[in-house]
């Protein structure tokens, strides 16, 4: 009975199936929102599922000279990384035991797919893939630093390196969202880079890089990459809900569950709106923006928090 219960928790709710469903739902929400922002109708609710089914049933082709083992492993491993991260960020249902330093683990798990994404560009021999991979690595060194610096603002204030610690600190002192609005937006900026969304979609810029590192992927592998990205979006957003909105909801309650989802949806609206109103950055513009403006800003913000 106990094992069955555990299996249910891991595979169905709040584990694998539930997280996947949430990821697909948020992907649909994103597309629908952007469509509505642009005055279009947008896809029907089953579109992400249909896309996934289509990709998984398609023939899987790789160009000659590509290491097939790596090409298969990379999307699987990066999917596994994000999936693991999702277990540390329970969707308002307590699962894994939180421990001191798990926030570092989550950041590590969330940043690994970007690295694997770069590798995906290198193992396939296409020129777009290699260029896209280069770009993703260049980008990696700017947004990742920013993300880490900005998120550490919440760690400084709460004095804890665990997600549970940050949550409980917010329950007593109130959410960090409003007092640390600047830090929140910096974190969002870093997160957009992580997710490679517009306007940070430089590595996979359609108009010059075709699909970046994923150009040569197809079928199941491409489907898995896309699923990873969709999952990463939800995990990244729930990371924000944990660190900046911890005071608004309580773990393990029904009300908390719904508030959590409402916050996720609102954050998705924010991301979609940002995607809709900005043109894609150029790589030099992005690095200049991050290293000359946003990272110093994050440092000053942290310094201010420490002194306070």
């Amino acid at each position: 009975m106990n094992i069955l219960h555990m299996l249910f928790e891991i595979l169905i709710f709040p584990g694998f199936a539930f997280v996947l469903f949430t990821a697909l739902f948020f992907h649909w929400l994103d597309r629908k929102l952007i469509a509505r922002f642009q005055g279009r109708i947008g896809p029907p609710w089953y579109q992400p599922v249909a896309d996934l089914i289509k990709l998984f049933s398609k023939e899987d082709i790789l160009p000659v000279g590509t290491n097939e083992v790596f090409a298969t492993l990379l999307p699987l491993v990066s999917f596994a990384f994000v999936m693991t991260a999702s277990f540390y960020l329970p969707f308002a249902v307590p699962t894994t035991q939180s421990f001191e330093g798990d926030i570092i683990v989550v950041i590590f798990l969330l940043s690994m797919p970007s690295l694997l994404y770069f590798l995906a560009g290198w193992i396939t021999s296409g020129v777009y893939s290699i260029l896209g991979g280069n770009r993703s690595l260049l980008q990696y060194f700017s947004y990742e630093v920013l993300f880490l610096l900005a998120i550490s603002g919440t760690v400084i204030t709460s004095g804890s390196w665990s997600l549970a610690g940050i949550r409980s600190a917010q329950l007593t002192s109130g959410s960090y969202f409003l007092p640390q609005l600047l830090g929140f937006f910096l974190t969002v900026s870093g997160l957009i880079g992580k997710l490679k969304r517009d306007p940070y979609d430089i590595p996979k810029a359609k108009s010059e890089m075709v699909a970046g590192p994923l150009t040569e992927f197809s079928g199941k592998k491409l489907g898995l990459w896309q699923l990873t990205n969709q999952l990463q979006t939800v995990v990244g957003l729930s990371f924000l809900v944990h660190t900046y909105f911890g005071g608004y909801w309580q773990m393990g309650t029904v009300g908390g569950f719904f508030t959590f989802y409402l916050l996720l949806i609102l954050l998705q609206c924010l991301l979609s709106a940002i995607s809709a109103i900005y043109a894609r950055f150029r790589i030099d513009q992005l690095i200049r923006l991050n290293w000359y403006a946003l990272i110093p800003l994050a440092l000053i913000h942290n310094l201010f928090l420490v002194l306070k």
Partner: peptide
């Protein structure tokens, strides 16, 4: 607009 990644202007 599409080429510079500003899809909203493209649609508009």
């Amino acid at each position: 607009a599409k080429n510079i990644g500003l899809d909203t202007i493209f649609m508009y």
